[in-house]
């Protein structure tokens, strides 16, 4: 024992460490979230919480349920693979409402909307249909094209008379 006669103060210092360590273990037991480590080094519930965030876009399947006429028209045209909300914006509020008419979507302005995709630019893929500003200036696109099926069976009368260019690119 005599070897340890003068170690009292050292043991006290070490004792502080041991006490602190046990306090740490106890606190740790209570503060670490229960689902931590469920799948890996993270809070397992975080996955479920992320999955529970609210949506704004309903998805085209939801639209097609009611608007089967539009869906049908669209499915035969060049915009068959352009989904509804790509032009109409997020519509979950409309689609999930008990009375959808209370959340009526705003009708897009085709003079602005169509250009987002179809304005001519050399940066776009060459086979993508594009129109320059000189294509029917002053007219709304929907005056001639049905946005749900934009190809025209027949060129309108005034077009043949005008010098404006037809859309470039795209298959006939």
């Amino acid at each position: 024992m005599s070897a340890f006669k003068n170690t009292g103060h050292l043991l006290r210092f070490a004792g502080l460490f041991v006490i602190a360590f046990f306090i740490f273990l106890i606190v740790r037991h209570f503060v670490v979230p229960k689902s931590f480590g469920e799948y890996g080094h993270y809070r397992g519930n975080a996955i479920k919480e992320d999955a529970a965030r609210p949506s704004y876009y309903a998805g085209h399947e939801a639209c097609e349920g009611c608007h089967s006429d539009v869906a049908d028209k669209k499915s035969h045209g060049k915009h068959a693979h352009v989904n509804c909300e790509a032009c109409h914006g997020p519509q979950l509020a409309h689609a999930s409402a008990d009375d959808p008419s209370k959340h009526k979507p705003v009708l897009p302005d085709t003079t602005v909307l169509c250009k987002q995709c179809h304005a001519a630019s050399a940066a776009k893929p060459k086979n993508f249909p594009q129109v320059g500003d000189d294509h029917m200036p002053g007219m709304a696109c929907k005056d001639c094209h049905n946005p749900h099926s934009p190809a025209m069976d027949q060129a309108p009368a005034e077009k043949t008379a005008s010098t404006s260019k037809a859309p470039q690119g795209g298959k006939k």
Binding site: N6, G8, H9, F13
Partner: peptide, 10 residues
């Protein structure tokens, strides 16, 4: 820490 042992040995 309650220890006043400052003997030469300590």
């Amino acid at each position: 820490l309650g220890s006043t042992n400052v003997s030469h040995k300590a």
